[in-house]
């Protein structure tokens, strides 16, 4: 068996002391793998990532139950300043650039976990992965296109030398061609840097093409898991997330939303 880098054991997350969002989530991420976390809007995917990265804290959320093990030590409810220094970096949903900083300044913020160390080589490395943003290195991030911004925020995270990269919906709102490009680069980062990646997506089709393993979330719980191949062949996944009937034809929206089979997971 491969070495397990991250493990969530039955965690519960509560916001503002009353709103329970995660209800006993367990999952394991092996080293050097891409693990995808799928599920519809509001399932709790972002909350799961934030529980790992410590970003729940500023939103008044807390892991109230269960443990999060990273390299076998507990990290739940630690501050983001601490967790990022363990090598866990989350790329936020909706991209969140520093609009009034240039591209290169945005990238330099990625060195915050190792302030004072040289960073020139890392800039070059990021530009090799994302040549599109090198051309605009002196331009303000606020004026970039969606695809450039996604490259920028992923590059910014790479500057931190993450061991575990948490990507929250990188494909959101991007054109299909750009999405394909982004996913190719995610796979390259995983292969060339050896970075372990947790990939949260609603675009299950793309995610399962590059992931090794996947989990499906509904209503704050994991309802299914398996290797990417197995999930791709699973009739429920095909129907609800890949939008295909058992025969392989794309089904109408009304049928996709039919609730019968979905219920079995809950």
């Amino acid at each position: 068996m491969e070495q397990i880098l991250l493990q969530l054991n039955n965690i519960s997350v509560v916001y503002s002391d009353v709103i329970q969002v995660l209800k006993g989530v367990s999952l394991a991420v092996e080293k050097n793998r891409i693990v995808s976390l799928l599920g519809s809007n509001g399932a709790g995917k972002t909350t799961t990532l934030k529980a790992v990265s410590g970003l729940l804290k500023p939103e008044n959320g807390r892991v109230t139950d269960g443990t999060i093990l990273y390299r076998e030590s507990e990290i739940q409810n630690q501050a983001p300043e601490t967790i990022t220094r363990h090598g866990i970096i989350q790329v936020l949903e909706g991209r969140q650039p520093f609009k009034y900083l240039t591209i290169e300044e945005n990238l330099r913020v990625g060195t915050a976990t190792r302030w004072g160390k040289p960073y020139r080589d890392d800039l070059e490395r990021v530009y090799r992965y994302f040549p599109a943003i090198e051309k605009r290195r002196r331009g303000l991030a606020g004026y970039c296109s969606g695809g450039e911004l996604q490259m920028l925020v992923m590059g910014r995270a790479l500057m931190a030398h993450p061991e575990l990269l948490l990507l929250d919906e990188p494909s959101l709102g991007l054109a299909p061609l750009v999405v394909r490009e982004i996913f190719r680069i995610i796979r390259r980062i995983n292969e060339e840097e050896g970075t372990t990646i947790v990939l949260v997506e609603q675009n299950a089709r793309m995610a399962l093409q590059i992931a090794h393993y996947g989990y499906v979330m509904e209503n704050g719980k994991i309802v299914m898991e398996g290797t990417a191949d197995a999930l791709r062949e699973n009739p429920d996944i095909r129907e609800f997330y890949l939008g295909m009937s058992a025969a392989g034809a794309v089904k109408s929206y009304a049928e996709v939303k039919s609730y019968h089979r979905r219920k079995r997971w809950l």
């Binding site: 990265s53 970003l55 500023p58 983001p80 300043e81 990022t84 220094r85 970096i89 989350q90 790329v91 936020l92 969140q96 650039p97 520093f98 609009k99 009034y100 900083l101 300044e105 945005n106 913020v109 990625g110 915050a112 976990t113 925020v153 910014r156 995270a157 931190a160």
Partner: peptide
Amino acid sequence: RSVADNQRAALSLGV
């Protein structure tokens, strides 16, 4: 400047 610009993103990078 990054904190002034987007505090959440700055936190996510360990600032």
